[in-house]
Design a protein around this nucleic acid. Sequence first.
DNA 1: GCCCAGGTGTTTC
DNA 2: GAAACACATGGG
Length: 209
Amino acid sequence: MNLESEIWNLFRVLYSELGSQHWWPADSALEVIVGAVLTQNTAWTNVEKAIGELKRRRLLSRSRLLSLAPRELAPIIRSSGFHNLKARRLLALLSWIDARGGIRALRRVRTPALRRQLLDIPGIGPETADSILLYALDRPVFVIDAYTRRILARYGLVRGDETYDRLQVLFHSSLPRSARLFNEYHALLVRLAKTHCRAVPLCSGCPLA
DNA sequence: GCCCAGGTGTTTC
DNA sequence: GAAACACATGGG
């Protein structure tokens, strides 16, 4: 079986074993965007605490967040780590969205142009941009993260040291271009990585065994 | 106490 | 290009 077929087959196996994942864990597009920045190289449990703190203080809105200086926001999101850096990055991103006329306005921009613009914002790299495109804006863009890379390498489909773009092209050329599918597939990879097979090829009870 | 976690930017070779 | 480093907290 060729590589493209293996990629497609992996999705079918995961979906039939684990079912629909209903991702990203957030109540709004804004919350996805905030989470996408805060989760950079950080365990999600730490991000949850920070988002919970923002909600507790009723700060989870673009205007309320933008009323804060980085020095004020940083201590509130402290638990997500790199908080000084992330406070600046998040405010820069929200400020850009604000200047563009809000999240609704972004929905009218074509995906390739929007992706380029997001990548031009300091602190927004390919994974953060693609997470926003897929999970906040429903664009058919596959998100490559450490889990994706680890699982594919674990099953011998890639070496693991490929570039972000190369892995993304692999998914894009293997699958129908569907936001719903990309969402489900990436979520399944994360679910698998979080619950199975961290240290050994196939743990007992692994759905792929 | 040590290692890691859903990255990104900068510097250096 | 690739590799090394800074950025920081909380959980195992």
